[in-house]
Design a protein around this nucleic acid. Structure first.
Lengths: 213, 213
DNA sequence: CCTTCATTAGTCAAACTTGACTAGCGCCGC
DNA sequence: GCGGCGCTAGTCAAGTTTGACTAATGAAGG
């Protein structure tokens, strides 16, 4: 699973109706350009692809009021909503060692109810534990480690990442259980997107003129 | 930078001369199919691409002795060696939050001399520190955290990853400084590839018949 | 006024990745 | 003595990602 679809669905959903450039700005607001592959090309591609697959509906609109080419607005369909929650649940649950997926899940978790988020994170802990057991069994066989030479450092690194990841997840669970943040069905949600015209207070300062890297 | 090129160059280089299937097996031996996108398609693609770019030379050989289509053997050129070390140094130094890149670097670090590996890992610590400072400055502005709501958890997660990653790197530096492993120019190198016909003692047990996932 | 420059909005070709597929050969069981 | 399974070795089309590019508008500065 690529994280782009989850992010794009999440952004469009929060707006109700959004065009590509808005999504692009939201992802920058979330810092996603730093921790995921959220480049313009990927975003526009995901929008078109998901529209083709029926997860989004596209509305052609008049040329924008503020210059630039005509823009297309998108809305999430029922099927898209289903897919969104499927991806979101998977992002929070599965330990696939892709930190960008978890990050996206964190940014969007408040679309779930508090109890479900907690349950998913508990399942995440379980799957980390499972992964850890599988790895140590396969890669530290009969004769103990050391047979592997420096290759063993790779395993050690992954185990270490799994362990510290689990510890962090426990902390998060505690914070959520302690009442932090506003989840679905708990009143006024946290505004996680930029309104039209609002500027990003967390922008990098470096304007992305021409989009080149 | 994609990690595939580094892995493939490293594997071919250790053999002197290798065909695609050998590389594929080495990467499985290193566990790379678990922590990177080392699928057959990517490997063969990287081989062809790097041959086209002059980093490898291709030798067509007779149909293999053990069935299957005719195989192509590759050797690393001088230019390829340069590129290999460039990628390897970058993998060990830069903190780009892509754990697969570091893993590949760990698996291949013994191609460098001990002192250089240590220097690169020290630089890695510095770049983690730098990254951490940049991030905390941007994302915890005037009014302190909490403005961000649950979005702040993403930042917290990344900071936590950076800190535990730095701690682990310090441990690795200590082990290497303490004399662990055999680096370049220190006599008999650790055999990091499978000889022709040798079986992988760390295979997953699940045969990859048909390669489907 | 008129040039320059950032912003808005998006496209495109080239490269890469994915997952499924092909095809020859040997060996094991029946 | 042959049918299927697994291993060797690789190809391919479809999908995704990348980085560079385009084109329109409006504000700022001279």
């Amino acid at each position: 699973m690529s994280v782009i679809r989850l992010l794009v669905l999440g952004a469009v959903r929060q707006h109700g109706r959004a065009h590509g450039y808005q999504v692009r700005n939201d992802l920058e607001y979330w810092g996603a350009h730093e921790w995921s592959n959220a480049k313009p090309g990927s975003i526009y591609h995901a929008l078109k692809q998901m529209a083709k697959q029926g997860l989004l509906v596209a509305h052609e609109t008049a040329p924008s009021t503020a210059g630039g080419p005509p823009r297309t607005e998108y809305e999430v369909t029922e099927q898209g909503t289903e897919e969104y929650f499927r991806l979101l649940r998977e992002a929070l649950t599965s330990y696939d060692q892709k930190p960008d997926v978890l990050s996206a899940g964190l940014g969007l978790m408040v679309d779930l109810e508090r109890e479900e988020a907690l349950a998913l994170l508990e399942r995440r802990l379980a799957s980390i534990e499972e992964w850890r057991k599988a790895v140590t069994e396969y890669y530290v066989p009969e004769d103990g480690p050391g047979q592997l030479g420096h290759i063993g450092e790779i395993m050690d690194f992954w185990i270490h990442s799994a362990d510290t990841g689990a510890a962090w997840t426990r902390g998060l669970i505690a914070r959520i259980r302690g009442g932090a943040y506003t989840f679905a069905g708990e009143g006024e949600p946290f505004v996680g997107v930029l309104a039209e015209g609002e500027e990003n207070p967390f922008a990098t300062g470096q304007p992305h003129a021409g989009d080149s890297e």
